[in-house]
Each structure stands twice: as C-alpha cells, then as structure tokens.
Amino acid sequence: MLELLRKYRSPLLVVFLIIFALLVYSSRLRKQPETTLFEKTILQLASPLQRGFDFSTARLGGIWSHYLWLVDAREENDRLLHENRRLRTHLDQVREFQLENRRLRTLLKLRRQLPLPTLAARVVAEDATSLFQTVIIDRGLDDGLREGLAVVAPEGVVGRIIRCSPRQSRVLLITDASSAIAVLVQRSRARAVGRGRGATLTLDFALAQEDIVTGDRIITSGNGGIFPKGLTIGTVSLAEVNTLDLFQTVVVKPAVNFSRLEEVLVLLDQSS
C-alpha cells in the first residue's frame, strides 16, 4: 500500500489539492458573509504593512512635492494669489449682497405695514455741505415722485422730498434745521412740533405741564398731511422743565441712523 502511495505520490497530491481547493471554495460560497480565521489572520498581518507603506509613501511624497519638485511652484503661487484675490473680492460682494438682502427684507416688511403705496429708493449721495441735512435718492419725476412726499426707513421717519428731477430727488431729513414735523409723545399723547437741530430734534411748543420724560417714544401725529400717523421719529433723550418758561426743553434722538442710510421707502399718495 505504502509502495503504491509512493509510486503515485504526485498524481495523488494533485488530485487531493484540486479536490481540497474545490471543497474549500464551494463551502465558502455558501457562507460568504462570514470572515474566516485565515482571512482575519491575513488582514491582521497586512494591516501594519499597509499602514507602514502608506505612511512612508505619504512622507516621501510630501518631501518630494514640498521640497524637491518645485518646478511649477512659482507659477502656481502666482495663480493661487490671483485666485485668492478674486475669491476675496467675490466673498466681499457676497457679504454685501447678504447685508443688502437683509435690509431689503426689513424694508419689504415695512412696506406691507404701511397704509399707502410706496416706492423703494436707494440713497446715492449726501449733502455737499455739513450744514444742511439732505440726501439724494435714485428716484425722481419719472418714477412718479414729487415734492412733499414722505420718506421713511424701517427704523422710522427719514424726511420729505424737497427737490425732484426726472431721475433723482433730494430728501430733507427731519434733523435739518428747516424741517418741522407734527409729533406726538406716544405714552402721554402730548402734542408738539419736532424741529431739526443737526444731529437731533427738539420738540417745540411742548407745554411745561405736559408729561414728557426721557425715553419716551415720539411718533408722527398725522397732522400736516405729509406723514401718516404713528411713524416713529425717535426717543426723548432729554426733558427739562424750567419753572419760569411756558414750554419745556425736550431733545429727541432720531430713530434712524442717517449716516448709515442706504435704502428708503417713499410714501406715494393714492393718485400716484
């Protein structure tokens, strides 16, 4: 028997190997999702090798590309600098659009609240002198504007149009010395006339016995026919009563920051 095995050792080994391989493969076909001990061992053995190779190639690649292969580095640097500048400009524009979008949304909200039809306009220039408080908006006669129309912003009243050209209008701010506007103290309903004083307003004809205190909110009274009733003018920053005077001294801080005014709404009358 042993003699026979020795004689046919090679063919028997071949047959054994093929049958064994076929058996292993067919048995594994039925249990595919399972990981065998052999596979686990091979993966365990390969893991440090793979990591080592990967680390070494990454390091060598890094050295090569960062310190040796610098042929295109200058051109690439120039290109990236250019691209960086372009992207920064683009980013600034996007930020500006975001802010503008936010402002316009607020303006749109105000537009829905107002009883009159409105027209949005952009402030394109300020007054040439520091004495007068006016701004120029990019809408004019062609857009249906005319002198005397009220101009508001989401924060409150801006002023009224005093000059109109076909494509531009000049707006007199409520802080201008020549501006006078009929107002109400929202809490006590005291009446007065708000007159511009450059950066602030004062309340003229506010009787000494009227209840006005610092922090009171001042709104338009609706008298005069230019501004609708209830629009915010500002808040009282100083209220003083002199016993000898008939009227008290009241200083109002406007609600609108005129130095940062960019978009406004012009209140059109029904005929416009």
């Binding site: 093929i18 076929l22 292993v24 493969y25 594994r28 595919q32 065998t36």
Partner: peptide
C-alpha cells in the same frame, strides 16, 4: 490564491483554486 482572496472582495478559495490549476 487564498491570500489574494483575503485582500480582495472575492470569496475565499476562488483565487486559491484558480492559482492551483
């Protein structure tokens, strides 16, 4: 072949059989 199978997505024994043949 089995080693190859362990490091690839095939069923264990496929390459084993192929390489053996």
């Amino acid at each position: 072949g089995c080693l190859q199978d362990s490091l690839s997505g095939t069923c264990l024994g496929l390459h084993g059989l192929v390489y053996l043949i």
